[in-house]
Amino acid sequence: MPTKIAVKDLRKGFPTEQGHLPVIDDVSFEVADGEFVAIVGPSGCGKSTLLNVIAGFDPPDRGSVTVDGSLATGPSSKRILMPQQGSVFPWLTVQQNLMFGLNGHAPGNREQIADHYAAIVGLKGFEMSYPHELSGGMLKRAELARALVVKPEVLYMDEPFSALDALMSLRMRKELLRILAEERHTVVLVTHDVEEAIHLADRILVLSARPTRIQMSFEVPFAHPRTLSSPAAQGLKEAVLRELGV
């Protein structure tokens, strides 16, 4: 597999009243084309900061992010970030949200494409609803559909399902896997949920406490659909948790 994303010697800090606060301390890793990489770490370790820098929203202090061999210095519609709090526009309907990123299509086509993706994520019948009329799980579906509509090469997901209850979170993971099996994307997922990482990812990177660096990398060698209760999966989970100091 060719390398899709290469993160090299990344450092990032923020100025505070007490002086410079280092958050990311020399992070390097590569993501292959079509690979699903999960980044787990203790809360507050700088996972979101790392993802924002990789997605091009915050410039790194040092180091670089290259995608397909060329330097990525800003956000692009080929690489969609799904932020932790969600970013579905509350003033637009589901359909208008999904059509938001569609440029250069004929107007009738745009609606058709939007409704197609609404159906894929299970929002059929809610195209004309406003976000505040939807449940938390449906909002996440809308967020995912809006990202998928523009056919991005890369999805950056920041704790996408952590605000959902356990049952809904599990259901969303299964749906995400189903969609990814149909439309191939490279995914970088940031999460604090080790089980979620094992369920979804091909590889797990474990971050240290702040200032963060990559402490360990685990391959997840299980074929889909995965059974998280299998001894091998449980063993992997314990190994990852041990790295996290739990």
């Binding site: 997605a55 929203f57 956000p75 692009s76 519609s77 690489r79 969609i80 970030l81 932020p83 709090q85 969600g86 970013s87 526009f89 938001f100 990123g101 440029n103 523009v150």
Partner: peptide, 15 residues
């Protein structure tokens, strides 16, 4: 987060 989403999708100034 909304401005960033708009920036992410690379829409025109008009949109």
């Amino acid at each position: 987060r909304y401005l960033r989403a708009a920036e992410n999708f690379g829409v025109s100034r008009y949109t």
